[in-house]
Nucleic acid binder design. Sequence first.
DNA 1: CGACGCTGTATGTGATCACAAATCACACCT
DNA 2: AGGTGTGATTTGTGATCACATACAGCGTCG
Lengths: 220, 220
Amino acid sequence: MEAQPIRVATVNDEVYARLHKAITSGALLPGMKLTIRSIADSFQVSTMPVRDALRRLEACGLVVFGRRSVTVTLLSPDEVEQVFQIRLRLEQLAAEWAIARVGPHDLDELERILADMDEPGLSADQWRALNQRFHLRFYEASESDHLLRLIRDVWSKVEPYMAIYASRVDDFSESQQQHRFMLDLIRRGDLSGLLVATAHHLDYTAKTVVSALEERLASS
Amino acid sequence: MEAQPIRVATVNDEVYARLHKAITSGALLPGMKLTIRSIADSFQVSTMPVRDALRRLEACGLVVFGRRSVTVTLLSPDEVEQVFQIRLRLEQLAAEWAIARVGPHDLDELERILADMDEPGLSADQWRALNQRFHLRFYEASESDHLLRLIRDVWSKVEPYMAIYASRVDDFSESQQQHRFMLDLIRRGDLSGLLVATAHHLDYTAKTVVSALEERLASS
DNA sequence: CGACGCTGTATGTGATCACAAATCACACCT
DNA sequence: AGGTGTGATTTGTGATCACATACAGCGTCG
């Protein structure tokens, strides 16, 4: 139980959190133009915290500052694929570190998350949240805040597109099967097996997301 | 010749660039407390662009916002080592992509940079700049802005400590020898050899930097 | 002599205002 | 009818002001 310094919620952080969620959940679609003033008005705050929040989102790569505009980052299918490749390398490293330090308590929690994901009738958002929690929860065992933060940021970049994918598909059994297989490898401490499984899992996800994205682009 | 959109220099960007350089070059030491107002005064601008710039630096991990203070990020030797490990994975991926697309023009420029590094009487800052340019110039051939930006950011995190190291050592021949070896592998398209060499090179650098850092900590 | 508590200052946060430039619209010219 | 130039509006940028609170310095008490 490492005590994080208590951060009293500042408006800045709140705006950042809401915008981050809005973008990654797909509520604000990639390519959409944002205006600082409208956001400020809708949140009933001044433009200042919105500016700060957008700056931080810019550094995460979620928005892009133009000459006179702020737009939600729009990735081409090719870029999405690149980001997935980057994610893979980072997550493989995290897996290496995590598998060596994972404890029984961690395993229990991972198991519980998977159980939650088996629950029928999950919304796409709920499934995405649980899916992310499963992976990140495991990587937390790596005990590297730097790596974890990096993975989170890179994850965020492709999250909007996973939201698109998840909203069109209602069968996650294949993905869930892979999760169980990976958890089993983690339990047995099979690192090389886990690395392969992770690559396979991410490739599978990437292919699905990218093809869904290309299909959407072609139809427009 | 891909045309970058013309960014007229805003005060914000200028402040960001200066602070970034000040931190990575070691002029602002890790752990140092910053005050928005003093920075604004010294740059003869208002506090506003400084705030924006610091927010962006925060997202890059170069500064940390406390409750009532902004401090330059201070990394423990252990954290520095972690970041080097992350760098390695990212740079190996970049090497994979770059070695397949590198062209004669790129090779010429890399050669020229190495020649510049052979120049005797280089200051520590100059050597660091050239060293970074050599590696990043190669990775530019990967043609992935996302990966490149990520590497740049992660690099920045350990740059201050490389500055400490570089200021204490005046013999870079070992490092330079590794560079020449790597460039030769690039020329011959020997990917697996390059991956090993990259790992060796970064491990060597990390060990040197970390031990210099620990030595400095022990003596204080 | 040291620890605790209070007060004053310093400083990040948020709001409001002013400005310049980019964008859009409409009208005009070719 | 299509392209172009001009004006109005939008909108990000930067400055200044007000405020609440963390932090330091000092005094007092045990």
